[in-house]
Simulated assay, not measured.
Amino acid sequence: MQQKHEFDVAPLPSHTTWWLWIPMLVAIGAAVAAISMDSHTPPPVAAWLVVPFVLLVGIVLTLALRRRQIALDNRTLLVRATFYSKTLPVEAIDVDKARVLSLEEHTDLAPMLKTNGFSLPGFKAGHFRLRNLGKAFCLVTDRTRVLTLPLRDGGMVLLSPARPADLLARLRELAAPTPHR
């Protein structure tokens, strides 16, 4: 019986968090400016709740951005990406067609339309339609080294492990038929 083995996820680009926080800070600044405008009546108390609410949303999204995991538990691939998770038995993956490639070169496999996911420049997590209109579950933090895992049901999983070849080798090892004794 095997134990759970985790694979490091490729780090996020340094600018990704800024794409989350700059709009939050602009919203806070706009709210404070609107509240403090010269007026004959004081702003309602609810107006002051905008600032802590936006801060809370930013904190929750920042914490979600940190939830990234790729693991193999026995013969099951576990992927956790922000608010989303995917659990697949190795048998559901067409390992013979799995590849490590660059989405910069293979643009037909790039996530294009978010159907239920979390997306920032340099980061895609959750369910997406690809440029080729296929469906994919994504945890992409590095577009230059993506492990593409075609599923036997027609879907796909796109992952950015720090060492994609190691994960692919382990999946191929698990998918290989075992000799009977």
Score class of each variant (00 low, 15 high):
L55P: 05
I93S: 06
V9C: 03
G134M: 09
P52M: 02
T115V: 14
R170G: 03
T115E: 00
P23F: 00
L20R: 10
T144Y: 02
D73K: 08
T148W: 05
A30K: 05
L78A: 06
K124L: 06
L149N: 01
T178S: 13
D8M: 15
R80E: 06
G155E: 09
S36G: 14
P89G: 04
A125F: 06
L139Y: 02
G134C: 08
D73R: 10
K97Y: 01
L101M: 10
T16M: 08
W48G: 08
D38F: 07
L77V: 03
L139Q: 03
R131K: 14
G134R: 14
M24L: 09
R80Y: 01
D166Y: 05
R143C: 08
I59H: 06
M112G: 02
S36L: 15
L55G: 10
L55H: 03
F118E: 06
G154D: 07
K4S: 07
A33D: 09
L61M: 14
F123R: 13
R163T: 14
P161I: 01
V79H: 03
A125C: 05
W48I: 10
T148Q: 14
A175F: 10
P44E: 04
V140F: 05
V26Y: 04
V157D: 00
W21L: 14
K135S: 13
D96F: 02
D38I: 13
A162R: 15
A176P: 15
P161S: 00
S39R: 15
T17W: 07
T41C: 01
P52K: 03
Y84H: 13
K114Q: 04
M156D: 01
E105F: 00
V146H: 01
N74T: 04
